[in-house]
Design a binder for these strands. Structure first.
Lengths: 260, 260
DNA sequence: ACTTCTACACTAGTATACAAGCATACCGGT
DNA sequence: ACCGGTATGCTTGTATACTAGTGTAGAAGT
């Protein structure tokens, strides 16, 4: 009974088709991308019916996607009222920053003691590619390479799947990030920080690697206050929201009845 | 089947925002407690229909609960096949351990530099209560106080809501913990470690506090291997699962057709 | 006796219908 | 003019019906 012989090689214990499992998975992926890309803005209302008809499915899979995104903190569902893209909570962003620092600094420290030749090659290769992306002013490409480098350092620490947890908190941070217009000089500065991190890791200096990682993460974080001051309408619990600047969308106060 | 004296459908309609709202929230809370308490064992199959009829609701809210628990890693849903309580993955447990160490060690380090009088009083009070719980051999009470102490240290670090993230990973670790029979001597040892952590925090020695926290967390973690060897049927990807020990449940191969 | 095929029960996924709550426009009273 | 009750259209929550896929029992064929 309960034989274990059926498991060895072929039984894929994945059980988690990463993002896409049917219509619900498609809805989840699509909605998440809309939110993280900034196309759906913080505070914007959603309609299950609208999204469902727009995607050509029923409410059920859309609801499933919404439930998952709510548990990730990207949506706020108010029963019997409506669903909105979660306004950015500065306190929550700070929590995410804290978590990233805790995880990635520790990873960098451990990675410094476990450098294998393949790791050194990979990190150097990533730095080269990043330099090329900076030279071409390719922001999207640079960001992708940035993520891969951070992920590889976590993997070097021996816990590759921890990156999933980082991705969850990173989502909140990235939502702020896309609000800032990242200029080329910023890219170059980030590249220099990456080079410092890799240097310390390859030298086996865990303490310095951790410190460099902390400084790096905080550089990105430091720009948030400026953004919150510039776009208060996207943030929650912001006492400075009194200034009557540009509203989220020009004049969409047409949500009244549609059949007069 | 079985129906192990579990709390029957308890529908508290009160849960508005903080707890979980509606029937879906009730199903979520009930299922999660069943899993974390160990009443539902790793690998055990679930049936949406069965749970729904047991709770007196339809499949829909049960499905919502299952979706959320799956995203927390407590359930595995195999499309068109069935849903099972997630087998304990040793690698995943190690990930959780890594995250707890990263978060709580950093918290302890920061807390050591931010001790306010109220914090000192609270920590000392918690230690006193814990000592009393040990003296009375009150495991449940001790565990509750243990959680409160860890939570307070995280709050002292300035990020009280980060504890939510800890709770998520802690769920995986606690699932293993309930499999081990915790004897009184173990409680006393844990209390001593708590005292060491608090002492270093109150002394303002962040480094020592972090180290003490790490040692503390690893003590709990170290018992896992023994449990995995003792109860291989609850674990996944365990090469030692060949021994024909006690099966998860005596002989419940009754899932055949019900209408011959 | 063993293997292969087939039918069926059971699963989760999806679609649809209904119920309940809230906000707002409208309208009648003051 | 102002205030308050009411109707209506929206929202999410829940129930139910149906679809499609999977594993297994059991029969049929070898």
């Amino acid at each position: 009974m309960h034989d274990a012989h059926a498991t060895p090689p072929d039984l894929p214990e994945t059980t988690l088709p990463p993002g896409r499992r049917g219509a619900a998975g498609a809805a989840y992926t699509w909605l998440k991308r809309e939110i993280l890309s900034g196309r759906m803005r913080p505070g914007q209302t959603l309609s299950e019916n609208e999204i469902a008809s727009q995607m050509g499915v029923s409410r059920t899979p859309v609801r499933e996607a919404i439930i998952r995104l709510e548990s990730e903190g990207l949506l706020n569902v108010r029963p019997q009222v409506g669903t909105v893209v979660a306004p950015i909570d500065l306190d929550q962003v700070a929590d995410g920053q804290f978590l990233r620092e805790a995880i990635e600094c520790r990873s960098a420290r451990l990675a410094a003691g476990r450098v294998r030749p393949a790791d050194a090659r990979e990190l150097k290769s990533l730095l080269r590619d990043q330099a090329r992306a900076v030279a071409r002013n390719d922001q999207a490409g640079f960001i992708a390479l940035d993520d891969r480098m951070h992920q590889h350092i976590v993997a070097m620490a021996g816990r590759p799947n921890v990156w999933r947890a980082v991705e969850d908190v990173k989502a909140q941070l990235d939502r702020v990030r896309v609000l800032s217009l990242e200029d080329p000089s910023w890219l170059a500065a980030v590249l220099a920080q990456h080079e410092a991190i890799v240097r310390h890791v390859l030298e086996g200096d865990g303490n310095a690697a951790s410190k460099a990682m902390e400084a790096h993460l905080r550089t990105v974080f430091s720009s948030i206050d400026a953004i919150a001051d510039e776009r208060p309408e996207y943030f929650r619990g912001d006492p400075v929201a009194s200034r009557s600047g540009t509203p989220p969308e020009p004049p969409p106060p047409k949500p009244a009845r549609r059949n007069p």
